[in-house]
Structures are given as structure tokens and as C-alpha cells.
């Protein structure tokens, strides 16, 4: 019994220690951000590898999710003769939930894991230590640009996901299933509010981007500098980001849409 309590205590302390470490790490990253203004080129390179290279995945997934939503929504709504509200169903579910959440999960798999592996390997091959020897701050040179590139990319990617998803729903609903095109758009416009739905969705994606970026660079920087350690850190990035995004999504949804 006592052992059990000891285990529980040890685990909780370990969790809090890690949270504290990551919090301090975040502060250091944020403090290193202003230095980036003098080297915008570093940011562009990272925006390319984090954002641009994820774009194809996001656009294709968005299109598919939108098409599936169109198909499923139509099959359910047609029973009630309400297939005209298909546009509203597709747009609201994408803009409020699926856009930010699915984009964040895909982003963690595509870009977050890559960031962790890259930084972890830099640490394992002592490149970070080498930079410090040359009086180059790895926080400013390596971590900060990757972090801010991920934070900036996420909202853009989530917005693209939603926009392409709506088009996918349009292709399936109007193109294949014969929903009236005017009804599709007008029902959507009458029910989707710019501030309540689109801006809130955007806020969600900013929060998710921040969390995903934070976890990815922290796990990389904190990785045990061995082959196995890097592989574990990469796995942890994906798993923790998924948990964090889904948990935060519930909280944010309750805060934003709960009081209607």
C-alpha cells in the first residue's frame, strides 16, 4: 500500500518536473524570439520545411474530409428532406472543429515529429554543443525559428483545410448528389457567423499550433541523446500533441460555444 503511494507520488513529481522544465524552456524560447528579427532568412527556411511541405498533405486531407462530410451529411439529412442544409453542416463542422483539430493532428505527425527528430539528432551528434562552443546560441539559431515557424504555419494550414473541405463538400453535395447550389451557399452563409465561428476556429488553430510547436521543440531539445532516445522523443511528440490538442479542444469548445 505504501509502495503504491510512493509510486503515485514519484509519477506525479516526475510529471510536474517535466511540466516545469518545459515551461522554463518555453520562456527561454520566447526570450530568444526577438533575435530572429535580425535573421529573417532562418525563419523562411523553417517556414518552407514546416509549412510549405505540409501544405500538400493538409489540402488533400481537407478535400477528402470535406467530401466524406458531404456524403455522410447528405445521407442523413435526406431522410428529413433537409438536404438543403448540407452546406451549413459541412461548413460548421469544418470551421469549428475538424479544421483546427484534424489539421493539428496531421501537423503533429508531419511537421512536429520531423522537428523533434531533427533537433534530437542535432543534440545526439553534439551539433548543439558545438554551436555553443562557437558562441552561437542554439536557442536563437535552431530552436526559435523552428518554434515560430510552426506557430505561424498552423493557423494558415487549418484555414486552408477548412476552405478546401468546404469545396470538397460542395463538389460531392452539389456536383454528385444534386443539392441545389444556391441553397448550399445561402444556408451556409445564414448560419456561419464570421466572429463566432470562423474567428473562434482561427483562435483554436493558433492555440493548437502553439502547443504542437512547444511540444515538438521541447521533446527534441530534451531528448536522451541516443538513437533510441530520439526515436522515443519523436513518438512522444506525436502522442502528447494528440492528447493536448484533443483535451484543449474540449475546453476551448466549452468556453467558446458552450453558452449559446
Amino acid at each position: 500500500m505504501i509502495d503504491w503511494f510512493q509510486n503515485l507520488g514519484r509519477t506525479s513529481l516526475a510529471i510536474f518536473e517535466r511540466l516545469g522544465c518545459s515551461g522554463l524552456f518555453l520562456l527561454r524560447v520566447l526570450a530568444a524570439l526577438p533575435a530572429l528579427a535580425t535573421r529573417p532568412r532562418l525563419l523562411i527556411i523553417q517556414l518552407y520545411s514546416v509549412g510549405v511541405l505540409s501544405m500538400m498533405l493538409i489540402v488533400i486531407s481537407g478535400l477528402n474530409v470535406g467530401m466524406v462530410l458531404g456524403l455522410q451529411g447528405y445521407n442523413t439529412l435526406v431522410d428529413f428532406g433537409a438536404e438543403d442544409s448540407l452546406g451549413q453542416v459541412v461548413a460548421l463542422s469544418l470551421v469549428r472543429e475538424l479544421g483546427p483539430v484534424v489539421a493539428a493532428l496531421l501537423f503533429a505527425g508531419r511537421a512536429g515529429s520531423a522537428l523533434t527528430a531533427e533537433i534530437g539528432l542535432m543534440k545526439a551528434t553534439e551539433q548543439l554543443a558545438g554551436m555553443e562552443m562557437m558562441a552561437v546560441d542554439p536557442m536563437k539559431r535552431v530552436i526559435a525559428p523552428r518554434f515560430i515557424a510552426a506557430v505561424l504555419s498552423m493557423p494558415l494550414l487549418a484555414t486552408m483545410f477548412s476552405a478546401v473541405g468546404v469545396l470538397g463538400g460542395y463538389f460531392v453535395g452539389v456536383g454528385l448528389l444534386g443539392v441545389d447550389s444556391g441553397a448550399f451557399w445561402s444556408q451556409m452563409q445564414s448560419k456561419v457567423d464570421f466572429y463566432d465561428d470562423i474567428v473562434n476556429g482561427l483562435v483554436k488553430s493558433v492555440v493548437f499550433g502553439f502547443v504542437a510547436a512547444w511540444i515538438a521543440v521541447f521533446e527534441g531539445y530534451d531528448a536522451v541523446p541516443t538513437t533510441e532516445g530520439v526515436s522515443r522523443a519523436t513518438t512522444r511528440t506525436v502522442v502528447h500533441t494528440a492528447f493536448a490538442v484533443l483535451g484543449l479542444d474540449f475546453i476551448l469548445t466549452a468556453l467558446m460555444f458552450g453558452s449559446d
Partner: peptide, 27 residues
């Protein structure tokens, strides 16, 4: 690389404008 990043940012903003104008009631 710079062109690609420019296209990426422009695509993101275009998607936002599309959501604002075509999907929501802002217009």
C-alpha cells in the same frame, strides 16, 4: 524557397478570405 513560402502565406490568406466572404455572413 522564398517563392514557395510566399505562395504558402498567400494561399492561407486566400483561404481565410474565402471563408469570410463565401462561407460566413460577413459580406
Amino acid at each position: 524557397q522564398e517563392i514557395a513560402v510566399g505562395v504558402f502565406v498567400a494561399a492561407g490568406l486566400a483561404a481565410l478570405v474565402m471563408l469570410a466572404m463565401k462561407v460566413s455572413n460577413l459580406s
